[in-house]
Simulated scan of single mutants.
Amino acid sequence: MAEGSHFPPDPSLFWQPLVKFGTVDLFGSEMTLAITRPMVIVALSVGLLSWWLIATTRKAAIVPSRGQAGTEAVYNFVRNGVARDMIGSRDFLPFVPFLFTMFVLILFNNWMGIIPPVQMPAMGRIGFPIALTLLVYVVYHWIGVKKHGLVGYFKFMIPAGLPGWIKPAILLLEMLTFFVTRPLTLALRLFGNMFAGHLLLVVFIIGGWELFQQGGFLTVVSIPAWIMAFAMTVFEALVQFLQAYVFVLLAASYIGGALVDEH
Rank of each mutant, 00 (worst) to 15 (best):
D10G: 14
R58G: 04
L107T: 05
T181M: 09
E3G: 02
W51N: 00
S65G: 15
M39A: 12
V202S: 08
F230L: 15
V74R: 00
I106A: 00
V203Y: 13
W209V: 11
G257W: 11
A225W: 13
F103K: 04
I255Y: 00
A187G: 01
L188W: 10
P94Y: 04
H141M: 01
T101V: 13
N110E: 15
A131S: 12
G149S: 07
V42S: 03
A60I: 09
P121F: 03
A60M: 08
I205A: 12
W165H: 06
K146G: 07
F14R: 13
A229W: 01
L44V: 12
A43T: 15
V180G: 07
F7V: 09
G256S: 08
F178L: 13
G257M: 10
T71M: 04
F217E: 15
R182C: 05
H148W: 02
R125E: 15
N109C: 11
A231D: 08
F108E: 04
F98A: 09
V40Y: 03
P38F: 02
F195I: 09
R125Y: 13
L200H: 08
G144K: 03
L190E: 01
V42D: 07
L242T: 09
L135I: 13
V42R: 03
M194C: 10
N193R: 04
L105V: 12
T133G: 05
V246N: 11
T36S: 13
A251E: 07
L259E: 08
A225D: 09
L18W: 08
G192L: 03
A251Q: 05
S65W: 05
E210I: 13
L176W: 11
S12H: 08
F14E: 15
T219A: 13
S45N: 11
F154S: 02
V220S: 14
L259V: 07
F191T: 04
V96R: 01
L107P: 03
N80W: 01
V151S: 11
G124L: 02
V180I: 15
G124C: 04
A34V: 07
K147S: 03
E210L: 14
T185Y: 00
Q119G: 05
L186Q: 15
M102H: 10
Y140M: 03
F178M: 14
L249Y: 06
V220W: 14
L250M: 08
P121I: 00
L250I: 10
L199G: 11
F108R: 06
F241D: 07
P116I: 07
L135M: 12
A187T: 05
L184T: 13
